Amino acid sequence: MSNYSEIAKQGLWYNNPGLVQLLGLCPLLAVTATITNALGLGIATLVVLVGSNILVSLVRNYVPKEIRIPVFVMIIAALVTCVQLLVNAYAYGLYLSLGIFLPLIVTNCVIIGRAEAFASRNNVLRSTFDGLMMGLGFTIVLVILGAGREILGQGTLFAGADLLLGDWASALTVHVWQVDTPFLIAMLPPGAFIGMGLLIALKNIIDSSIKARQPKPQVESIARARITKVG
């Protein structure tokens, strides 16, 4: 269980794909103007990440090392095609909103990176859990960034939720404040860069605070005690 706990900590915080590895930034910055877009892309990426980790782990002992990367890319491309067709069939509005960034999940470095670094070296259960945690970590960053940009840009939350969940979800839209003119810098790429920088800075501050609160290693105390005795 401690091993799985470490995998969870790595995916959600210490090795988060968006905040630490800085992978998949192109879709992360491009489609997070609203929570709906961010959540839609996050779920799609999560499904592909878990599926690719499972399949790569299953075939890892049967694929020659010389062609492993092309095989991994083919697996990812097949999964992305399936997800794209499902989104097109059941959430067409979201499909149009995400545009080219949905098929571009194939080139997301998070997915190919986990397939090569983890799934190709571990069993199915661990690979599945790793894909789930990395996907959740990436989705959480997408949603937080999307929430901040949507509130600042147009004063709402969950605008366009019906694109993802159906017509009934239009009632989920929350009007935080009335915006006469949209705050464009929050809705455009510069706002995404600023928001991402603030999230990374906040994580670094939290990490520094946690590190400062940790007790000093016993080695230092033993060394000081020896110095005191010698003196």
Rank of each mutant, 00 (worst) to 15 (best):
S5L: 15
A8F: 08
W13V: 13
Y14N: 13
G18D: 02
L19I: 07
Q21M: 07
L22S: 12
L28A: 10
A30F: 00
A38W: 01
A38I: 04
G40W: 07
L41E: 08
T45V: 05
V50W: 00
G51N: 05
N53F: 01
L55A: 09
R60P: 03
K65H: 09
E66V: 09
R68D: 11
P70N: 11
F72V: 07
L79E: 01
V80E: 00
T81F: 10
Q84E: 12
Q84K: 14
V87E: 01
L96G: 00
L96E: 07
L98D: 01
I105E: 01
T107L: 10
I112F: 01
A115R: 05
A117K: 14
S120D: 06
S120T: 09
R121W: 08
R121S: 09
V124G: 02
F129A: 09
L132K: 04
G135L: 04
F138Q: 03
L145M: 09
A147Q: 04
E150S: 08
E150D: 13
I151A: 06
L152S: 11
G160H: 06
G160R: 04
T173C: 05
V176A: 07
F183Q: 11
F183H: 09
P189V: 00
P189A: 06
P190H: 02
M196F: 09
L199S: 04
A201F: 12
L202N: 10
N204K: 15
D207I: 10
S208Q: 14
Q218N: 14
T228Y: 14
